[in-house]
């Protein structure tokens, strides 16, 4: 029964995404068109490029048509899954994004695992030892890492890497990557992941650890916990079987947001550490006004956010029996 309700809920939500996406596409397109100048400005500023060349490029890129027509052509192609051609690269945007998306996912999923694997146990462990010296130390450190932006951490680590000479100074692969065995390749990427994951993850651990600790402390103060203890339940059962399960629910919503940030959340770290992901390419597309590519970046970001929210709601419904979905 519940499964059926959930499926119906899922489909309804998925369906309601469509008008939302339509609105988002309108706004993204409109905002992009409103930015002053266009891709051809680089050509216009170069006196050795002739006017007719610029006019020809305008036609090639479809920039000569009315904005409304441009939107419908673009949106029509989008429905077919075609994000258009990149102005600068002259290859389909799909190909360009495809070539980078895996690298970004490697970094963001590694960071995600690193953060959750450390922050949750750490938060629980500290909640149980509230006010201990260790709790104080970790709290202080957490405030520090919450306050320091990830790109700055990346810079500090980079400086450290260059000074010691042992760690890679950015990038995802060593120069001789192509000649390595499969196992060697995996190790090489893991080695290169070390700095970006630390830089991007320490702030996340600080934040998540604080939430986990706080939630668990709240739950531990509730009456049913006291009841459980009074019944003589062993302490580890009280905490892990009952308290933690309830304390973790609010974090699931957070996981949904993490999903939304999978493709864009680490852009700054990517840029500082020359990680060959989407971040740099999208920034370039925006500053260079490579229209289709920049729009694709915005649309993908919006889609990920919507899907992330949906995912979080579903996970929550699945984990928390108190939540009822309305189908």
């Amino acid at each position: 029964m519940k499964k059926e309700v959930m499926l119906r809920y899922f489909l309804r939500r998925l369906f309601s995404l469509l008008p939302m996406l339509f609105l988002i596409s309108l706004i993204c397109f409109g905002v992009s068109k409103l930015t002053p100048g266009d891709y051809l400005d680089q050509l216009r500023s170069n006196p050795s490029i002739r006017q007719e060349t610029i006019a020809r490029e305008r036609v090639r890129l479809g920039l000569d048509r009315p904005v409304v027509a441009q939107y419908f052509i673009w949106a029509g192609n989008l429905l077919k899954g075609d994000l258009g051609q990149s102005f600068r690269y002259r290859v389909p945007v799909n190909t360009l994004i495809g070539s980078r998306i895996l690298n970004t996912l490697v970094l963001s999923i590694a960071t995600l695992i690193f953060v959750w694997l450390i922050a949750l146990p750490l938060g629980i462990w500290l909640a149980v030892r509230q006010h201990s010296a260790l709790d104080q130390i970790v709290s202080t450190l957490s405030y520090f890492f919450l306050g320091v932006p990830s790109f700055f951490l990346a810079l500090v680590f980079l400086w450290f890497a260059v000074r010691t000479g042992g760690l890679p100074s950015g990038g995802m692969q060593s120069p001789g990557f192509a000649d390595l065995s499969f196992f060697g390749k995996v190790l090489d990427i893991l080695w290169h992941l070390l700095i970006p994951v630390l830089a991007g993850g320490l702030g996340g651990i600080a934040a998540l650890q604080r939430r986990m600790r706080g939630n668990l402390l709240d739950v531990l103060g509730e009456e049913y916990v006291r009841t459980a203890r009074a019944k003589g339940l062993p302490e580890h059962k009280v905490i892990y079987r009952h308290a933690v399960r309830n304390a973790i629910n609010p974090l699931v919503t957070l996981l949904g947001f993490e999903f939304a940030a999978l493709l864009s959340g680490n852009a700054l770290v990517e840029i500082v550490l020359s990680w060959p992901g989407l971040g740099m390419m999208m920034l370039d597309a925006l500053t260079g006004q490579d229209f289709n590519l920049a729009l694709a970046g915005m649309m993908i970001g919006a889609l990920m956010l919507l899907l992330g929210n949906l995912l979080a709601d579903l996970l929550l419904a699945w984990l928390d029996p108190r939540i009822k979905l309305e189908a």
Binding site: T35, P36, G37, D38, D41, Q42, R44, S45, Q289
Partner: peptide
């Protein structure tokens, strides 16, 4: 920069 170009162009 684009605005500069727009101005002179």
């Amino acid at each position: 920069f684009n605005t500069c170009v727009e101005k002179i162009d």
